[in-house]
Amino acid sequence: MSVAPATARRLRLLSYPSVEEISLSGHGYGKVIVWLEEEKIRLYSREERKALRQFDRNWWNTFIQYCRELGLKLDEASVRDAAANRSALLDRLVSLAVQDIYKDAIEEQRLTPAADADAMRQNGHAPSGNRAGATTGLSVGKLVSPVNRMLQVLDLPLLPAQGRVTEEELLAALQCVLVRVRPVETDQTHKPKLDLPLGFECIDKDVRDAAVVLRLLHGRELRKLQTNINGMINKLQEIVADPRTDTRLGRVGR
């Protein structure tokens, strides 16, 4: 199993020397973690890092401890030494490294939020919508056209090209974009339970889940069909139905 393309891309941007050689097993994995800590994250002192450099049997536990100290929330499933967890944890550490660089740049005033937004605009990306002052100092009018291009691609209602667009309207539009492009939550704990009867034996959990989903989709199709049938009967009833009652006929028995 190799590193996810998005992780590799960000490692390249962080100037990791040999992205192609990264492996999710053995020392290769440990090396990239140590590099991230030493060059980018810098949580530990030199002394404390020694344990991370010792790629022995205990390394995984040391690494998990390191992740916890970094403040990463880890559930029971994600602390197991498995390829999927290794990939996910590397991705989270890389994200953390990128965030640190960004925060440092802001603190050192090498980058202003406005400049950031501008840079992203030029690259065709939306600035993060949760920073209210992101467009400060920029002409809202200039942003309308690129934002509209994004809205069009995502099939969202466009901002009026002519006329005045307020900063709030622009932000609202960008938030809509953000909702659409934000990756789906992959946290396993939020995975919906598909504990529904299947009607046949299936040992493999994933195949079972897939079969249940197919059952649900089939049910939806059947429901549509039945609704159409009912609709048709309703139309016919409008022509022929004439229910009557005659209370004079009623007789209570004994």
Binding site: I233, L236, Q237, V240, A241, D242, P243, R244, T245, D246, T247, L249, G250, R251, V252, G253
Partner: peptide, 27 residues
Amino acid sequence: SEGIIPCKPNDLEEALQLGVDWSMREG
């Protein structure tokens, strides 16, 4: 006891044949 829904012999024949479809047709 006797019901308040008027029912002629012909209606009964159809009801015996059609079941709920008869009730639906009649509304």
